[in-house]
Write a protein that binds this DNA or RNA. Sequence first.
DNA 1: CTCGATTGAGTTTTT
DNA 2: CTCAATCGAG
Length: 768
Amino acid sequence: MVSLEQFHAACAAINKTPDDEKRAAIDASAETPLFIVAGPGTGKTTCIVLRILKLIFVDGIAPSGILATTFTRKAAAELRSRVLGWGYQIQGELQKDGILAPHEREWVSRRDLNRVVTGTVDSICEAVLRDFREAGQQPPVLIDEFVAGTLMLRAGLFEDERHKDADLDAFLKKIAGSSGWGFNVGRKANLLQQIWDRRYQDQVNWDAFVKKGPKAERVARGVVGEAIAAYAGELQEREVVDFALLEHEVFTRLRAGKLGEFTRQLKVVLVDEYQDTNLLQESLYFELARACGGALTVVGDDDQSLYRFRGAAVVLFRDFSKRFKKVFKSSPKTVFLKTNYRSTRNVVSFSNRYARLDAGFQSERVACKPELVTPRTAEHGLPVLGLFRDDREELAKDLAKVVRDVFRGSGYRLPSGEVIKASAADADVGDCALLCSSPREYSTGGKERLPLLLRQELRAPAQKAKRIELFNPRGQDLTEIPLVRRFGGVLLECIDPKAEVQGSSESKLFSDVVEVFTEWREATAELSGHKDLVAYVKAWRSRKAPRGLVWPRSVSALELLYGLVHFFPELYDDPEGQVYLEVFTRQLQASQMVGTFDGDIVEDAKDNRTWKSKRELLRDFLGPIASGAVKVNEDLMELFPRDRLSVLSVHQAKGLEFPFVIVDVGSDFKTNSASQRFKRFPDKGGPAHALEDLLWEYTTLGKPARKPRDRAFDDLYRQFFVAVSRPQQVLLLAGLNASLPGGRIPNVATGSRRTGANGWAPIPFVKI
DNA sequence: CTCGATTGAGTTTTT
DNA sequence: CTCAATCGAG
């Protein structure tokens, strides 16, 4: 073991010197339970990583005894890479001459950092069930959201014709809060799915919920119970689990003491992003903590909780001290990280003021939470800017001009005369991000949204050097992207010429998938001028090998895919194209895992194997892409290209920072339309709030005291707090004039308070 | 100021 | 396709 001083000297040597507030958390003894409340930009991950390393080197805890979880896969990967990266460096420093005695040096060198357990809760649960199962037990097969949705549709709704049940309809409609538009079976299945998830996540006393509701609802609740039981039966029959069941299963086994082999080695549990934890996860963590004498560290920020729709309950974070004490009879040590090293003074003070804007929001925050402060050396930076125009087109045009002037021109002049100009040697448009509540380029009604208009404007200049491209792979439906359609179409033509499999009713493809397939095939017409490609496809269609060779009995689809990629340079040259290619290769890998042909196209008349192998590819590989079930996920986009302007949802931007951030505070709001109040100035709660009201009275949390509308407001303040605290240097708010204070439309993002008092008075910004 | 015609929007986010 | 906000005519 090494001393604390030696450890911190090694940290300093690799340029990681934590400030005093972080030291309070890092240096706490291994047994100390910690409640770390860390505002944006305060170095929360740094703090966790250094604490983990301190536990290993100073307290001598075996790496395999440390369990660290976070909320997203991306964050988990980041955490792991830092533990290993910094850990190896510190390990190296400690082994330098003259620091340690030989036997200690030897001890340090033997610490196997790779054995620290990191991951998302779900990935860890999956691993636990796989690695610590009882004799004869099968490892669980985890199904994704799409498969779960299909099963809910089939077993939950269509079985016994529950989809026609009027009581169920009325009940679900009430939760959806909709007047009926867009309320179809898909939506119903989705709502049932959410109830199912919450049954476990919120640990609902299900019997009580089904039997003890108000009289008028009892029949409907009974039907919900049946639907969900049918879904559960389906999962059991197929021997698969979904996310909710996975965590539940681990919890039940833990409780029953069946995972002793796993818990015995555990010494410390650390949880990042704890503000997005649900009740089941809390129970899970407490159960694990019990196994290591209460050595639980949680880190998070209540103001950045964005995942209520997925079951997150902020109270669990806000009241962590109380809740922990109730179970463990001792209070955790509370540490506030309040020094923001990310942003300029102006941005930090803006964030602080935004968090304090609404009086009703304050009671939902952690008690006695200090404001963010900046280190003495921080610059004031530019004032917060606001760009507001009458319509979307004008807004896009002027935004494009700002971006172009700053990154490709001689700078943008502010009214004060100050000039914004990206001056760093390696500065590029990649330093700029547009944050929206949704990155979609078209609205559901097919109208062009700001990201699309901005894309067009940035591309517009005649001078090539002034043109800027957008990076927004999540902005369009995968199935609508011309490149994806052509590539998918060619794959289809090669795998299934003449649509024999696609057209056969026996292949049991969903009708909407078949429709998309047909469109994809039609899209290949645009490629007719491409001679080499046409010849390649023709050979595939006729299954004729070049002269002197025979067509192989079996070809892997992956080989076909890479063969075709050569004809689609965008798939490897263009950053968005690369992301799309990755979607195809990943889905192919996924289909290889579930299928029986290992992703091969076989030529074998016996048992209809040729047909079956093709069907498998259509169903498991291309089908999910065509149905829209496959989305571009976050970990595909770790790197934002340096020469593009990135568009992100606020959710995606969480945990990230950019020198220049544009926040879309209302490019969609032209009128005070009731249908979009939920993302601006809600008059009622949404489905997530309705579900809490419906189910929490049957849980240990109890019926929520606050009204759904108030919780909806809290959620919006949190969302914009996250957005506004991303920039390092420049924060630019963009929207339509209608959203300006004094404009026609109340909007939380531009300073409306829930009481109706509107105005940026306490939060000044400079109009440009 | 009132009535009728015109315009806008459809819920967002994801392990 | 339906509901509601907003605009313009009178």
